[in-house]
Design a protein around this nucleic acid. Structure first.
Lengths: 114, 114
DNA sequence: TTACCATTTAGCTAACTAGCTAAACATGTT
DNA sequence: AACATGTTTAGCTAGTTAGCTAAATGGTAA
């Protein structure tokens, strides 16, 4: 009904929410690759691969070049820094038994001294 | 056509790919809250809020309790640790001009000495 | 029991996504 | 010019998502 969210973080998270695309990024972390090279590990059709690349490109996670009939892709990790920054606010919540500590604090706050 | 991905990381990223849900997590980082409290900052209907909570719960990002007619939610940050671990492999790619360095390395590798 | 408050379920719509095949486009080779 | 290779576009289908309203459920309080 309403246009879907297009804020940068949402675009990035959505792009990362697919194992095929994450595998592509992992490959590109090793260096640039052509579409054919990126498609090689999968049983997907080329158009499907092409679409995945579009999603990554729209999220700013890859940049594409032109070399003869090839359209090499390379990783552009800047959006991942945003993700990392976002995550930092939650680090204390997952580190070192924090959840159990929280539970304890909540319990004593309710007056349960056991 | 095929069932959609259900691996843990994909579920987590998909849950995070929505600003409403991220705002809910930010609120829950301050402590548990009821559905009504979580809904308060938004103009969304209660059923819509309820659905967002389901998505967060399915991703394991929140846990829910029962207290009389309330169903309080609390943050469960464990899945975010997975995200953090996944991200680490890419840290070098976004840090300190790394992209520009990569460009330079690629250029000299192609024999362009300029 | 009735009323009220918090929350979820049912059922709908519009938009988006991931996949496909077939066809088109782009570039280099013969 | 014709061909081969790499990649994208067009157009389809099935399934998912985010929103809504109306109705049902669960629990407390009169």
């Amino acid at each position: 009904m309403f246009p879907r969210e297009t804020d940068s973080l949402s675009l990035t998270f959505a792009a990362l929410a697919d194992p095929t695309r994450r595998a592509m990024l992992a490959r590109l972390a090793q260096g640039p690759a052509t579409v054919k090279e990126l498609a090689e590990p999968f049983t997907l059709s080329m158009p499907t691969i092409s679409k995945h690349l579009k999603v990554l490109e729209r999220a700013g996670l890859i940049q594409r070049g032109r070399e003869a009939q090839w359209r090499p892709a390379q990783l552009h990790a800047a959006p991942l820094r945003e993700v990392s920054t976002w995550l930092e606010d939650y680090r204390q919540h997952w580190e070192a038994n924090f959840d159990r500590l929280q539970d304890y604090l909540r319990k004593i706050q309710k007056g349960d001294a056991s």
